[in-house]
């Protein structure tokens, strides 16, 4: 192939009959004189013929019926309940065992727990702050001493006025 020969792109396009008229005439004229280009063109055309000679490969099944059955099968569950896919599906599969117990994650459960806890703690405070009903020895009243730390005048502080401190020896 010399520098005057048309490019392989041009020969290939000529074999496809896809060259403009002027370029086609040029390439054909050149190929008539150039045995290399003529051979290449013949090879490209023979390749095209070889493709056309390839046997048919029919599917031999009614794919229409199969595809419709598949589309219908996919459409039915989707119509019943749209389901999450991908990462959402995996996340929901982890949460689902917990949500199987209906009250576990409900706001009522949290409110009830808070209420019970509040009543329990409140009951403890009432017990220790009622010196009249104290039935156990002072050594057992550890909770009272501990809670007095949160008084307006903690233990050890000076009483700003006479009635500000309690009668049990602490600041109250």
């Amino acid at each position: 192939m010399n520098r005057n020969c048309p490019s392989d792109d041009a020969l290939s396009a000529l074999a496809d009959d896809a060259l403009p008229a002027e370029a086609r005439t040029e390439v054909l004229t050149h190929s008539a004189r150039c045995p290399l280009c003529a051979a290449r063109l013949a090879e490209l055309r023979a390749l095209h013929d070889a493709f056309l000679a390839l046997p048919a490969v029919p599917l031999q099944v009614d794919l229409g019926a199969r595809v419709i059955a598949r589309l219908q099968a996919e459409a039915e569950p989707a119509a019943q309940a749209p389901r999450a896919t991908g990462w959402r599906a995996r996340l929901l599969s982890l949460v689902r065992p917990l949500t199987a117990w209906p009250l576990a994650l409900s706001p009522y459960a949290g409110a009830t727990a808070a209420l019970v806890m509040g009543v329990w703690l409140g009951g403890m405070l009432l017990q220790v702050e009622d010196p009249q009903s104290q039935a156990w020895p002072p050594s057992a009243n550890v909770t009272l001493v501990a809670m007095s730390l949160f008084d307006a005048v903690p233990p050890g502080n000076l009483c700003p006025r006479a009635d500000a401190c309690g009668p049990i020896g602490s600041s109250r």
């Binding site: 192939m1 020969l11 290939s12 090879e43 013929d49």
Partner: peptide, 25 residues
């Protein structure tokens, strides 16, 4: 498309010779 087709044909013709002919070197 034009250049890719030409390259594809050249690649295929390296492995398949539809007929005996002169090489286009």
């Amino acid at each position: 498309v034009k250049s890719r087709l030409a390259r594809a044909r050249a690649a295929l013709l390296e492995h398949f010779h539809p007929q005996a002919g002169a090489n286009h070197e």
